[in-house]
Lab assay of single mutants.
Amino acid sequence: DRIFMTRTEALEFLLKAHQTAVDKIGHPSHKQTPADHAAIEALDRLLLDVRARRVDQFQINASAAQIIVTD
């Protein structure tokens, strides 16, 4: 599946995904793992790359739809 978004929409989408990941590892019942921190770092890099126009398409994980940034 493909989803087309403007750059602004894609950045909002990534910010929400980032916040969800941060909230998940901050929850008291969740045991933090290196994979959790790696996922947040990957989202940080992706946010910067989309914002800087170095990336025009991405996929958060293998089961997610491919996001295509349109400007």
Rank of each mutant, 00 (worst) to 15 (best):
R51A: 12
Q59D: 03
K24P: 02
Q66E: 11
Q57W: 14
I25Y: 07
F58Y: 02
S29C: 05
K16R: 14
A21H: 11
R2S: 09
E9W: 02
A64C: 05
L11V: 09
S29Q: 11
I40H: 03
V50I: 07
F13S: 02
A21Y: 13
T70A: 09
T6Y: 03
L43Q: 04
P28R: 03
T8M: 13
H27C: 05
F4T: 07
Q66C: 08
Q66P: 08
P28H: 07
D1C: 10
D1A: 04
D1V: 06
A64L: 11
Q32V: 15
I60A: 04
N61P: 07
K31H: 15
T70C: 07
A42H: 11
I68C: 06
L11M: 11
H27V: 07
T20K: 13
H30V: 04
V55T: 07
Q66K: 12
T20D: 09
P34L: 05
S29V: 04
R45Q: 11
L15K: 14
A52N: 14
D23K: 10
I60L: 13
E9Y: 03
K31A: 14
P34C: 05
K24E: 09
Q32W: 15
A39E: 14
V69D: 03
D1I: 08
V50Y: 01
A17K: 06
A52E: 15
V22Q: 05
T8H: 11
A65P: 07
S63I: 12
N61W: 05
L11D: 01
D49V: 03
A62M: 08
V22D: 01
E12I: 08
H37T: 14
T8Q: 14
E41W: 08
A65F: 13
R51M: 13
V22S: 06
Q19C: 03
V55W: 01
L43I: 12
Q32H: 15
K16P: 00
D49E: 12
K16A: 10
S63P: 07
D56E: 09
H37R: 13
P28E: 11
L14T: 00
I60H: 04
D23E: 13
S29G: 13
Q57T: 11
A35I: 05
S29N: 10
H37N: 10
K16D: 07
L48G: 10
I60C: 06
